[in-house]
Design a protein around this nucleic acid. Structure first.
Lengths: 337, 337
DNA sequence: GTGAAAGCGCTAACAA
DNA sequence: TTGTTAGCGCTTTCAC
């Protein structure tokens, strides 16, 4: 049978409460402490987290809800969150929600039954009611790469607006006037589009609504949409894809039509993933400070768990434009518009 | 305060054991059952998994140890494992071990303190002693994409030997004689190399040890190694990279030297990830049946947890060669050797 | 400084 | 059919 605090107590000739105190570093006579520690080591005794949590202590596990762990950007976030969490002694239970409100609700409920110490809700958590509920019952939560306005909650996001803006300005400065956008249907993309629109406006350019298209998250779909865009009567000279996967799709779509990148068409990605470095040509993209964001998210959560946080905060991190070879000056013939 | 079985019992006017029985679907009078269920719903009562686990029931969580969740192949496996686990009502706690024996040991110990119901040890779990220990104490474990010979343990792997063999045969049939290998330092790569060697042997070709190089898992390192290989006096006409990431490195290394793929050099990957489809040219690679493997691993684990498994098994799944444009016939001038 | 005992929320004999 | 009660392994007063 698994060995318990009783076994240690007996073998050390003390009471279980003494053992408990030793294991929790509470004041205890030096000699007793040594003895207990020795016995514990001999027996290879490990306290049960379950039993301890049942008396009100932590489970030392965090619920990490994300849309899809197989997505590479998300996976990278997961690793960053995990690393930081481990530093604090926490483990992660990971749940892929596929942007489904029901799944979000189910997982949160389930993990609460398992008494996780807190939640990190990442990248597109939809179910606002669940968040409010958590807040109301003062369960520690932080929103990561997702912003829910009008909610008093710790939040760490990247300035997607800025990212979209910078990308658009970069292209405009290269002479592009007809800039298309391939976006996903989520709030990050929305913000990126908003940045793009603002950049156009600041340069007195008109936004062409037909140049903004929504894709699902597959390469194939983006490829098709890019193809359509390029086949249109008045095709764009540049395409901003709202992430690197979509950008690869655009790249493939252009290659299919023998359009040269960047001579005839500029393409940009977003996220600065491995894809953007390995593609041909390498993609101009936007780097997101994933590790810092994730570390901070964990920091905020742990503060909240330890109930020593002064106040809630919403942190907006700045992205950074990475210029590579997929963008170039606009072909002369398309310069006038 | 959190509400408990006592609250439900009181409000429903029954004893806690009655409530317990209802919640666990044990035989109980229909009317009482209805009443209890109704009250439970009203109160939104959710039994504590902790307390229940403490009395000997499951925690319904599985420990999933893997080298690095940010690796895209691993992340895909994680998703597949998660999906299947959820079907059975289990959650996953994920731990990245970076192939470090100490981390493996620490995490296993920690998760056992948390009383996970079982472990899935994936892709390169090194610490054999930990595995033996687990086995000895009959903790449910399954090895995924990792094979420990001489251990009576449920295992699901892919036939890496076969993958390496097929890749080599494919290249040999294209006329290649000097085929290099860029591998990682792990057992999968070892097997793939073994397959490669066997193929050479079966075709009466000599293996050149200097053509087999070991890389870490970064694109950059593989790129450098490929460069060195190509700069050598007698460069290879084909490179088998032991995964798609390394293959992208090789691609980049060749591009750097203006070597045309596949006209002057053939390159193959392994794993059939998104990278292999999006690269230029798309990579000939080997597809691994990840989802089936992961589903099966979970099935085996759950069987073991439910103690209704007939016997342990080691399942070897077959990989599949995917031909794309990165491999071509060997240049004439290099045909003789 | 150390121990006895109550209790965390639940399950499972065993009684009634 | 339902309730009583003794744990599960630990923490935490409160005495000693």
């Amino acid at each position: 049978m698994k060995l318990t605090i009783y076994d240690v107590a007996e073998k050390a000739g003390v009471s279980i409460s003494t053992v408990s105190k030793v294991m929790n570093n509470q004041p205890i006579g030096k000699k007793t402490k040594q003895k207990v520690l020795k016995v514990a080591k001999e027996l290879n005794y490990k306290p049960s987290v379950l039993a301890s949590a049942l008396t009100g202590k932590r489970t030392s596990t965090i619920g990490f809800l994300l849309p899809d762990i197989s997505n590479s950007v998300i996976a990278e976030m997961a690793r960053a969150v995990e690393d930081r969490a481990v530093e604090y002694g926490f483990n992660l239970v990971i749940c892929s929600t596929d942007f489904k409100s029901e799944k979000e609700e189910r997982y949160v409920s389930l993990l609460r039954q398992k008494r996780v110490d807190g939640f990190i809700l990442a990248a597109g958590f939809r179910n606002k009611e669940v968040v409010s509920e958590l807040l109301k019952e003062s369960v520690p939560v932080v929103l990561l790469s997702e912003y829910h306005p009008h909610l008093s909650i710790n939040t760490v996001t990247v300035d997607n607006f800025m990212g979209g803006y910078e990308l658009a300005v970069h292209l405009i400065s290269l002479g592009h006037r007809r800039i298309a956008v391939i976006a996903e249907d989520n709030s990050s993309s929305q913000e990126r589009i908003r940045g793009y629109r603002n950049a156009l406006q600041d340069h007195n350019l008109e936004a062409h609504e037909d140049l903004i298209v929504i894709s699902d998250s597959s390469v194939e779909h983006a490829q098709r949409l890019a193809g359509d865009l390029l086949d249109s009567l008045h095709p764009p000279t540049a395409i901003i894809a709202c992430n690197d996967i979509l950008a690869v799709g655009a790249l493939l779509g252009a290659r299919e039509k023998n359009i040269k990148i960047p001579e005839e068409l500029s393409i940009t990605g977003f996220d600065n993933t491995l894809l953007s470095k390995s593609s041909d040509p390498p993609l101009t993209t936007v780097e997101i400070p994933i590790r810092s964001m994730c570390s901070l998210a964990v920091d905020l959560l742990v503060e909240e768990i330890e109930k020593r946080n002064e106040r809630k905060q919403a942190v907006l991190m700045l992205p950074k434009l990475i210029r590579r070879e997929s963008t170039g000056i606009c072909p002369m013939k398309d310069r006038n518009e």
